[in-house]
């Protein structure tokens, strides 16, 4: 599903030896639930950005879902993100001027060519929100939702086109422990459905839920072991 080979990343303006990622090689198979943990500034979000095609400035090879990302032009990369990757962010990243339903259906606006799902995207968005217990909040703006509800809307958005890969950056970072636990359960359930889930986190309760924990420090993978959920 994901294969990184000798990947190096240096941010513009950084000193020559100051690398955010240092010769990282990694393979994540389809259907895995992986937690990437590390201290702040260790390079975990950088790693996620490279896997998700949000950052193309690196050395080495990044292959995701059969695509060598370095070979994709801007349009194809946008299409890759649109169809193959679902993002979930710490601060939800919902658009306040849109309703919950419109937020979930937003990726459909950037669809090029036939949709990767058989249903109408708006109908799929509605169904996903209802599955997540937000059927009564379809027309609500994010400002009127709780943190947990917002994150479920964000997850529903990530699932719109049923991507094979979910990339989550500190998905429980803005939630209380109870709500955070519910969200973690949600990811476990999605993983059981067949989604490959990669979660960036520095919280033990999240990493413990993963089957595999990759520890990263100073731009290097220092540990790649089994998690608490195995």
């Amino acid at each position: 599903m994901i294969r990184l080979t000798q990947v190096e990343k240096r941010y513009p303006g950084a000193a020559a030896g100051e690398l955010a990622l240092r010769k990282v090689s990694l393979q994540i198979d389809e259907g895995e639930l992986v937690a990437i943990v590390g201290t702040s500034g260790s390079g975990k979000t950088t790693l996620l950005n490279l896997i998700g095609g949000l950052d193309r400035d690196y050395r080495g090879t990044v292959e995701v879902a059969g695509h060598n990302l370095a070979a994709l032009n801007d349009r194809k990369m946008a299409d890759f993100r649109n169809r193959h990757v679902g993002f979930v962010f710490q601060h939800f990243s919902l658009l306040d001027h849109l309703t919950a339903l419109e937020n979930v259906a937003l990726p459909a606006a950037f669809l090029r060519g036939p949709a990767p799902i058989s249903e109408d995207p708006v109908a799929r968005a509605r169904a996903t929100l209802e599955e997540m217990g937000l059927g009564s909040k379809l027309g609500e703006n994010p400002n009127n939702l709780s943190g947990g509800q917002k994150q479920r809307v964000a997850i529903a958005r990530a699932l719109l086109f049923r991507p094979k890969l979910l990339l989550c950056d500190e998905p429980t970072g803005s939630l209380d422990s109870t709500t955070g636990a519910q969200i973690i359960e949600q990811f476990q359930a999605l993983n059981r459905e067949g989604y490959t889930v990669v979660i960036i986190t520095h919280e033990n309760r999240v990493s413990e839920a993963a089957r595999r924990i990759i520890r990263i420090e100073d731009g290097r993978i220092v540990d790649d072991g089994r998690g608490g959920a195995q």
């Binding site: 649109n82 937003l106 950037f110 669809l111």
Partner: peptide, 8 residues
Amino acid sequence: LLRALGAS
């Protein structure tokens, strides 16, 4: 965010 969701 729009770029992440598929905007070129």
